[in-house]
Amino acid sequence: MIKAIILDKDGTLIELGKTWDQPSVDVTNLLLDKTDLNDEDKEAFRKHMGVEGDTVVANSIYAAGSIIDQAREFSKILDMPLSKIEEILEDTYLNYVKGHGEHVLVMDGAMNALEALKDDYILAVVTNDNRRIAEETLKLANIDQYFEFVGGADDFGPKPNPNALHEIARRYNIRLDEMIYVGDSTVDMEYGKHTHASIGLATEESHREHLKEADYIISHFDELLDTLDIINAAQ
């Protein structure tokens, strides 16, 4: 039987656009202004990172990658220590979240699902965000109380590195095949392969293309409980 449900944060628990579009655009412009790139190359780099206009594209480096992943891309065009780039990225995101709590919105149906699951499963978040940002975001969204474990890329390495899953297994004396992972990106589905099953959340039809490796796909959190029933019944 499944004993733990591990969830991604952005795009899964928390609406991606309202939380991360603006700080991603802001920090991109801030760092690009420190380069010698021409306007055409700057625009190409924005698209490479996942910024189109004033929004972040799903499954992009910004949407699915860790801060270290993002910093490594910037280090290719910036004469700046990697650690300094990471610091600028983390501070920009954290300050934005703290100052714009009204933009931190829970995905439709997520709160009801967490309330229904909390008594029967260990609930955890593993994200490619750094832990400080993750904990602040969950707190502002008023869902932090549901999670016994929050793992960030700065503590355990970015997904699909399974270190955080092994820590959950050690801490709660369960196996990886007694967990499932819920996410919205290609890397999430790869990460979920370390568990019993990966469940992809696709709130839009176009997002399904990022979830080809998913064991199950749901379009709304209302479907998560039924999917868990199917998984448990098959064991």
Rank of each mutant, 00 (worst) to 15 (best):
9 K>H: 00
16 L>C: 04
18 K>P: 13
19 T>D: 06
21 D>K: 15
23 P>Y: 08
24 S>H: 13
29 N>Y: 12
31 L>N: 13
36 D>T: 15
39 D>T: 09
46 R>I: 00
50 G>C: 09
52 E>H: 09
53 G>L: 09
57 V>H: 14
59 N>E: 06
59 N>R: 10
68 I>S: 12
69 D>K: 08
71 A>M: 03
73 E>V: 15
75 S>H: 13
84 K>A: 14
85 I>H: 12
88 I>D: 05
88 I>T: 13
90 E>D: 14
90 E>K: 13
94 L>M: 07
99 G>R: 11
101 G>R: 11
103 H>L: 09
107 M>C: 10
108 D>P: 02
111 M>K: 15
112 N>L: 05
119 D>G: 15
123 L>D: 06
123 L>P: 04
126 V>W: 05
126 V>A: 06
130 N>D: 09
132 R>T: 07
133 I>D: 07
136 E>A: 03
136 E>V: 04
138 L>D: 02
151 G>M: 05
152 G>R: 07
152 G>S: 08
153 A>V: 01
154 D>F: 12
164 A>C: 10
167 E>S: 12
176 L>S: 08
178 E>W: 09
180 I>Q: 11
180 I>M: 10
181 Y>G: 07
188 D>A: 07
194 H>R: 11
194 H>L: 05
195 T>W: 02
197 A>V: 01
198 S>E: 03
201 L>Y: 01
202 A>Q: 01
203 T>Y: 12
206 S>M: 03
208 R>L: 03
210 H>T: 07
211 L>M: 06
212 K>Q: 11
217 I>C: 02
218 I>N: 05
219 S>N: 12
222 D>P: 03
222 D>R: 15
226 D>P: 00
226 D>Y: 08
233 A>T: 11
234 A>I: 06
